[in-house]
Simulated assay, not measured.
Amino acid sequence: MKLGYVIIYTNNVEASVTFYEKAFALSRRFVHESGQYAEMETGSTALAFVGDELAQSNVASYRKNTPAQEPAGIEVALVSDDLDAAYQRAVAAGAKPVNPPQTKPWGQQVAYVLDNNGVLIELATPMG
């Protein structure tokens, strides 16, 4: 097995794609004409978005992502060589600050924001 996708369910796929382009400097890899599925360029493991309508046809029920609720107990980690710039860009694009950049005991720098769907995003420098 290998990790193929991380998929975020959203009520607006296009808005999520546009947000990730602005906040995290990611490029769109694929957007389906239905507007219910998209992928971002994130390396070998794809970050994808699925519209709630399509998600509900795949999964009987789930807690919808919304900025009005606490984030789910999961995070998406994005890696950057310049954490301070990545954090500032995300916040300037509308990401909600959670924790500013700080250095962890193992030497890695990390910061946390919420995306436009209320999903917890870790911004981090590469390990080792």
Rank of each mutant, 00 (worst) to 15 (best):
G35C: 10
Q36D: 15
Q36E: 15
Q36A: 13
Y37A: 03
Y37L: 14
A38G: 03
A38C: 05
E39F: 00
E39G: 04
E39T: 08
E39C: 08
M40Q: 02
M40I: 08
E41L: 10
T42P: 00
T42I: 03
T42M: 00
G43F: 10
S44A: 10
A46R: 12
A46I: 09
A48S: 14
F49L: 09
F49W: 11
F49P: 01
V50L: 08
V50K: 02
V50I: 13
V50P: 00
V50R: 06
G51S: 13
D52C: 01
D52I: 09
D52K: 08
E53R: 10
E53P: 00
L54V: 01
L54M: 14
Q56R: 15
Q56M: 09
S57Q: 13
N58P: 00
V59R: 04
V59G: 02
V59W: 06
A60R: 08
S61H: 00
S61M: 07
S61C: 06
R63T: 15
R63Y: 00
R63H: 03
N65D: 07
N65I: 04
T66L: 00
T66G: 06
P67E: 07
P67T: 10
Q69D: 15
Q69W: 04
Q69A: 15
Q69I: 05
Q69L: 13
E70S: 13
E70L: 15
P71N: 05
P71K: 05
A72W: 02
A72Q: 12
G73I: 09
G73P: 09
I74L: 10
I74S: 14
E75Y: 14
E75K: 12
E75R: 11
E75T: 12
V76R: 03
V76I: 14
V76S: 06
L78Y: 03
L78S: 06
V79Q: 10
V79P: 00
V79K: 05
V79G: 02
V79F: 12
S80L: 01
S80P: 01
S80M: 04
D81F: 08
D81V: 03
D82S: 13
L83C: 08
D84E: 14
A86K: 02
A86S: 15
Y87R: 09
Y87Q: 08
R89W: 01
R89H: 03
A90Q: 06
A90R: 04
A90D: 07
V91H: 05
V91Y: 09
A92W: 02
A92E: 15
